[in-house]
Amino acid sequence: MTPSPGAPAVVDGPTRWRRPPLIADARLRWALLLGALAYLVIGIGSLTVNWGRAAEGWERGLRFLAGFVQPDFVSRWGDIQQGLTESLTMTLTATVVGVLISVPIGIGAARNLAPLPVYLVCRAIVAVSRSLQEIIVAILFVAMVGFGPLAGFLTLAFATIGFLAKLLAEDIEDIDKAQVEAIRAAGASWLQTLNYGVQPQVMPRLIGLALYRLDINFRESAVIGIVGAGGVGSTLNTALDRYEYDAAAAILLLIIAIVMVAEYASSWIRRQVQ
């Protein structure tokens, strides 16, 4: 018998192998697992459910859902139309203004482009914008500039800055350094390096993010209207206050339709710019 090169070698090592666990100490591993489980059980146990109220609300919920079967677009059409126009206007303007402001902040918040002091200031702006939820910001702006779409516009623009600047900065930090180095080596200035070395690498993502934010801003405009920041949210709030669930259903269906159109449109555009 001649040994062929593909023949299995004689087994002389261990035949058992297990992947090393994430937490090496078995006791610690089990303690953490059981602790988390116990916390979950206790947490669920501490929720007090008012079954009487839930049964009562069940009926109201059903009436709301029944509204979807027969949505009423007609009787409040004037209000709905005005609300939607307001929402779309403030969505678009807030996104454009937000993007314009967030691009320089995003560049400043990228560690590989900005000097440390600039970086820290821009990161702080991003952190403030992101830590304040839209509703809270909307309440603040309503208090400052009064009810209406201006408060909504300011809220959405503010929220856009935190979102877009952070994600843009992260994308800039991930770019291929060699391309930037090549542009610098040719004697390019800082602005030229940005324009030739960085922008082509992040542009598709920036466009994608801006479109995605447009989407989010429209949905948010429906929510912040409830606290008085104008738009279709105010119309929705009024309908709910009047128990006009058929009109509310019509508004919600329109919001869903617009979000879907925006979703398909933005994914198509993103494919084109890749």
Partner: peptide, 17 residues
């Protein structure tokens, strides 16, 4: 730097331009 042309490993072209 204008007077020194540089050529790179992995080309370092700006891919999307």
């Amino acid at each position: 730097r204008r007077r020194m042309g540089m050529i790179f490993q992995e080309y370092a072209l700006v891919e999307r331009l």
